[in-house]
């Protein structure tokens, strides 16, 4: 249960940035997971000099800076050629970042460890210990959700951001620099991914393949939750975290259900290989199944609002 929560919250940290950028700018950022990876690597580099806590600030800031540069000198230029160009741009960027990581840090995983101060078990439930670091991960994630929500709905900046989305001309006429608002949003989204990298990089493994391994699942979360909906992304992350975690525990397969109902199955039966796949084995596919189902039943996602 707690495992699913912590995994779901990490997913949320990752996907919130993506959904934010999408809702604000209409850009589907394929390089988002790469920013996550950069966050982890920057944190690793910073932590070798300064320790983990400074890294928590420095790494997301550095990623935000890169995000800002990407928007200012890349996306803004590409923007006028439409969505396909933007998509291709971020797609290419993802590859560039990956190769860059190869060159700089090598292909093998780096030694990015959990800080010793958080490396103990916080409490135990039914003899299973729960590590303090996971509690910390959850706290950071929830704090981020709260901060993000408040910033967008309760502050002046949030107001301007929301306004520049729907009425950019009007906001510009009022004397605000709309392109800069976009740049800030993109940088902010990248910073969120970077933060997730700092937190996730040492809990899991920091290596060049990490972007690819979370890239797809993040998209699933965003699509499932509804494109551009922060609350949707939150709920979707939790659901997908739970689905993936719980399904591992079930060793039932179609075969065992059918046998339970009195159907005789043996290796000779048609499609036997299919019947004996257990839910646990299929666990990693389930989020994608969910996404496809969601697109069929409710194309705009869980909490998505389709804007014109």
């Amino acid at each position: 249960m707690l495992n699913s929560l912590s995994y779901g919250l990490l997913l949320f940290m990752l996907s919130s940035g993506l959904t934010l950028i999408f809702s604000m700018m209409g850009v589907l950022n394929f390089a988002h997971a790469s920013f996550y990876m950069l966050g982890a690597y920057f944190a690793y580099q910073t932590s070798t000099y300064l320790g983990f806590w400074p890294a928590l600030i420095v790494a997301p800031a550095a990623v935000a800076f890169l995000g800002a540069l990407t928007e200012r000198y890349g996306l803004r230029t590409v923007h006028k050629f439409g969505h396909v160009a933007e998509l291709l741009f971020t797609f290419g960027l993802a590859y560039i970042i990956e190769e860059f990581v190869h060159l700089l840090w090598g292909r093998a995983p780096v030694e990015y460890r959990i800080p010793p101060i958080l490396d103990f078990s916080a409490f135990s439930i039914y003899t299973t210990q729960y590590p303090a670091y996971r509690v910390f991960m959850m706290l950071v994630s929830v704090a981020m959700l709260a901060a993000l929500y408040l910033a967008l709905t309760r502050t002046r900046i949030g107001l301007i951001i929301q306004a520049s989305l729907t009425h950019p001309d009007m906001v510009e006429a009022l004397g605000h620099n709309v392109p800069r608002v976009f740049m800030t949003v993109f940088a902010g989204g990248a910073a969120l991914a970077g933060l997730a990298g700092v937190i996730g990089g040492n809990a899991f493994v920091t290596e060049p393949g990490m972007a690819a391994s979370v890239g797809t699942i993040v998209f699933v979360v965003v699509v499932f939750g509804g494109m551009g909906s922060l609350a949707g992304a939150f709920v979707a992350s939790l659901i997908i975290g739970a689905v993936q975690t719980f399904s591992v525990a079930f060793d039932y397969s179609l075969a065992s259900i059918l046998t339970g109902m009195g159907v005789q199955l043996d290796p000779e039966s048609a499609w036997y290989e299919l019947w004996k796949v257990t839910i646990a084995q299929a666990a990693p596919v389930l989020p994608y199944v969910l996404m496809v189902l969601m697109l069929i039943v409710r194309p705009k996602g869980l909490m998505g609002t389709r804007e014109g």
């Binding site: 699913s4 995994y7 899991f204 393949g209 993936q244 975690t245 990693p284």
Partner: peptide, 11 residues
């Protein structure tokens, strides 16, 4: 479990 796809082995 699937090859190289599992991020979180906690479950």
């Amino acid at each position: 479990h699937p090859l190289g796809k599992v991020k979180d082995f906690a479950p």
